[in-house]
């Protein structure tokens, strides 16, 4: 399993993939965090879904992680795309047969790939945390936000909790991507299905029939990073996300184990 993980990390380390992913995550994080701070005194929406996040709110301990968790959804979509493609391309490139000759245990292949996804997610979230907190700290004086509450033990434990929650969201989307990749066995179909579903269909569904929100996978994955919302609790989102992903992953794992590799 760890051999598989090392092999997977070698593939993820290729410069074009790694550099472009790091850049996208860093730029998006910087952009969204900047918007929160630069518009904090405008009286207009500067947070998620048009919420107003005033300097007074940002000056509290939770201000430290506001920028950090605001991009969780994009981190998730990134993980979804990368891992839908990393799994599906083994079929389209025909490389799966090479992997299975060197490691015939398909469950070891799958768990090694999963571990590499978790490591990749940790890297994404770490970059997000570093960029978001640096930008927040840099822009705080400009936005008339005081940062003394950020350096308390309350703020630090909040940072730890948010890190875990954002990581869980990213891993959930990454798992979703792997499920789609194994199901469709084609990167293009897997990525487009995942993105269209999470970004478009869920938004429309949740917007039109708000009672569906608590059942939509993507919305629940992201709600974990936010630590829960007024309408859907953190515990609910954790439970329903885990249920979806465990069932989905079990189905594709069985398919992966049984299916002939004829590509």
């Amino acid at each position: 399993m760890f051999n598989v993980m090392r092999a997977e990390l070698r593939k993820l380390r290729r410069p074009t993939l790694l550099v472009s992913t790091i850049l996208v995550v860093a730029v998006l994080t910087a952009l969204f965090t900047s918007i929160v701070y630069l518009r904090a005194n405008s009286g207009q929406g500067n947070g998620q879904r048009g919420e107003i996040i005033s300097p007074a709110i940002l000056s509290q301990a939770a201000g430290l992680v506001y920028g950090f968790k605001i991009v969780s959804f994009f981190l998730g979509i990134t993980a979804l795309c990368v891992f839908a493609s990393q799994t599906a391309q083994e079929y389209t490139l025909g490389t799966l047969r090479n992997l299975l000759v060197r490691q015939p245990s398909r469950m070891k292949i799958l768990s090694g790939k999963y571990l590499s996804m978790v490591i990749f997610a940790i890297a994404l979230v770490t970059i997000d945390a570093i960029v978001a907190i640096s930008v927040s700290y840099g822009l705080a004086p400009h936005a008339k936000v005081t940062t003394t509450a950020w350096f308390t033990s309350t703020a630090l434990s909040l940072l730890g909790r948010t890190f875990i929650n954002v990581l869980l969201t990213t891993i959930a989307f990454g798992t979703f991507g792997m499920i789609l990749g194994l199901l469709f066995r084609s990167p293009i179909s897997a990525i487009s299905t995942g993105v269209i579903w999470s970004l478009i269909l869920e938004t429309i569904l949740g917007g039109v029939v708000s009672s569906t929100q608590k059942w939509l996978p993507g919305q629940n994955f992201d709600n974990i990073a936010q630590g829960g919302s007024l309408t859907v609790s953190y515990q609910w989102s954790m439970g329903i996300s885990a249920a979806y992903l465990v069932v989905g992953f079990a189905i594709v794992a069985i398919l992966f184990k049984r299916r002939d590799v004829a590509n």
Binding site: R14, L93, T95, N98, R102
Partner: peptide
């Protein structure tokens, strides 16, 4: 069948790790 974006040597190293 190999990964097009990796070098020949990297491709072999993937399989060696595995």
């Amino acid at each position: 069948a190999f990964y097009p974006g990796l070098s020949g040597a990297e491709n072999l190293k993937v399989l060696a790790s595995l």
